[in-house]
Design a protein around this nucleic acid. Structure first.
Length: 224
DNA sequence: CCAGACGTTGTT
DNA sequence: GTCTGG
DNA sequence: CCAGACGTTGTT
DNA sequence: GTCTGG
């Protein structure tokens, strides 16, 4: 799953934007939570574009936008059938740039937050977007696709966000791609090496936007 | 036919 | 327990 | 995702 | 919008 993440305005993030010819930089933000506005890359009529979207998918057909249902993640296993995600999965895929994300490890009723980050690159979350309403008050929204955790992650959590490999980005974003050819992207995969750090529970509160504080030793995960 | 749902995670 | 807000 | 509220009346 | 349940 993925219910909190961070963005750093660093060279890795910049390199990811460069992949799409987007000549902008992202503001550093910590502890981004569902329902917040987040930067999203999608392919528009005039090439790749960076847009702010609400991180909580609002299907175009709902009467009123809200948070009645959990729409900030979409299960990879059902993204093809779900009424809320099927259409976006076919033609409205996007990428949420990130530098790290947070997962909670629950044991004996206690929750320990962990910060998870690649050692040498930015993260490209596989996302879906939709458009609700017309004109004034219309809303762009998005969600992050999730899948089973790779073995190395399972000590922390059984689900994880889908993180695309560098050679999958363009195809994921093309509205014309046949979804059948995207299914391999949704299998658990680790794009590169990752570090897992236990962090202070201060992060639990989504109002706290300070840098996460490491509280222990890291675990290193190799891509292979 | 109309009405109502449409979601994820984790825990028991 | 369940819903809302961040 | 987690944290925090969850209510009414009347007064400032 | 589309599917399921009654």
């Amino acid at each position: 799953m993925c219910g909190r993440y961070n963005i750093s305005d660093d060279p890795f993030t910049q390199a990811l934007l460069d992949e799409f010819g987007i000549d902008r930089h992202l503001e550093t933000r910590y502890n981004i939570a569902p329902t917040e506005q987040v930067p999203v890359i999608r392919r528009g009529d005039h090439g790749y574009e960076l847009r702010e979207m609400r991180w909580w998918l609002i299907p175009s057909w709902v009467k009123e936008p809200g948070t009645r249902y959990s729409m900030f993640n979409a299960r990879a296993e059902t993204v093809n059938e779900s009424p809320a995600f099927r259409a976006p999965f076919r033609h409205q895929r996007c990428i949420l740039p990130a530098s790290s994300f947070i997962e909670w490890h629950t044991e004996d009723g206690k929750k320990q937050p962990w910060l998870i980050r690649p050692t040498d690159r930015a993260i490209a979350f596989a996302g879906l977007w939709d458009h609700w309403g017309h004109g004034e008050g219309s809303i762009l929204s998005c969600c992050i696709v999730t899948c089973d955790a790779v073995p190395g992650f399972r000590r922390i959590h059984n689900r994880m966000p889908v993180m695309l490999e560098a050679d999958q980005l363009q195809r994921w974003l093309s509205p014309d791609t046949d979804t059948e050819s995207l299914m391999p992207y949704l299998q658990p995969q680790l794009p590169g090496d990752f570090e897992l750090w236990p962090i202070d529970e201060h992060i639990n509160n989504a109002r706290h936007k300070e840098t996460p504080v490491m509280t222990g030793d890291k675990i290193l995960l190799r891509a292979d």
